[in-house]
């Protein structure tokens, strides 16, 4: 790892410490970095965080997996036919443009306050993103590669499985990677506004209400680390598996 990577975080912590120790901002609003770090370790050490973390992860991964299962096949079907994708392009674009938060009440009505509503919000937003990226991937396959396969007398099925599908995989994966970040945002927000007992969003919101600000900041930190790690994992997989993309 490059040494420079650590400079930014250190500067950030120093400024944070400066603000809180010199009381530039009301110290009640910003606890010291030390207090947050202690709370952060406590949460793990005492095992307080696991129920929340696991609940968030469960909703996140379940919604994300469902989005993939729904999004990729639909995207492949829509992308394979210009007629189909032209027919549904507007609808998909429109639904994607609705802020997912605007749909919380509707999902609440349909699914109640359980996990179903939260997962549905994730699936709604993420599957649309995956559909769009998959469609785009299929439609942007190089015509020349398909022609080459045709000259070699490949049948339609082989052309799809051996040419179109592999070529669209980097696009599909990009959609999947963007989805996981959006899924995390949605899960945390729904945990705040669609009631639940456990979850990072709930922990952040409750500690805010009860003015346990060290806990709030520690939970925010955990959510941030989770988001960062998920994105990083996908980036690494992307560069390893799809090193050939765009060539």
């Amino acid at each position: 790892m490059r040494k420079e990577l650590i400079v930014g975080p250190i500067v950030f912590l120093l400024i944070w410490a400066l603000f809180s120790y010199l009381k530039i901002v009301n110290p009640v609003l910003i606890p010291t970095p030390w207090a947050v770090i202690v709370r952060f370790t406590e949460l793990f050490y005492r095992g307080e965080i696991w129920a929340d973390l696991l609940a968030t992860l469960y909703r996140l991964l379940f919604g994300f997996a469902l989005s993939i299962v729904v999004g990729i096949p639909l995207g492949l079907i829509l992308g394979s036919s210009k007629r189909l994708s032209d027919s549904f392009e507007f609808l998909i674009d429109f639904f994607r443009s609705i802020p997912a938060s605007a749909l919380f009440p509707m999902f609440l009505l349909f699914f109640g306050i359980g996990d179903k509503a939260k997962v549905s919000v994730v699936v709604f937003s993420c599957s649309l993103i995956i559909i769009i990226y998959t469609m785009y991937g299929v439609r942007n396959c190089k015509e020349s590669r398909i022609r080459v396969a045709k000259v070699m007398k490949a049948n339609k099925f082989s052309i799809f499985t051996k040419v179109i599908f592999p070529e669209s995989l980097p696009h599909i994966f990009a959609g999947v990677r963007i989805s996981i970040s959006i899924a995390l945002i949605l899960v945390v927000v729904t945990e705040m506004f669609i009631g639940t007992k456990y979850g990072l969003g709930r922990l952040i919101y409750d500690s805010h209400l009860m003015f346990r600000l060290s806990t709030m900041y520690a939970a925010i930190l955990i959510a941030g680390i989770l988001g960062y790690m998920l994105n990083k994992i996908f980036m690494v997989v992307e560069s390893k598996v799809f090193h050939w993309a765009g060539k």
């Binding site: 020349s144 590669r145 022609r147 396969a149 490949a154 051996k162 995989l169 050939w244 993309a245 060539k247």
Partner: peptide
């Protein structure tokens, strides 16, 4: 059986396949 080399040949190779699997593609079919 016809072999056809297109003008824009880099765009006819399959970048996700190693060279050997590119060359073997017609046999795989």
């Amino acid at each position: 059986k016809i072999g056809y080399i297109f003008q824009n040949f880099p765009e006819t190779l399959f970048p996700w396949r190693k060279n050997i699997d590119n060359i073997a593609f017609p046999l795989e079919l």
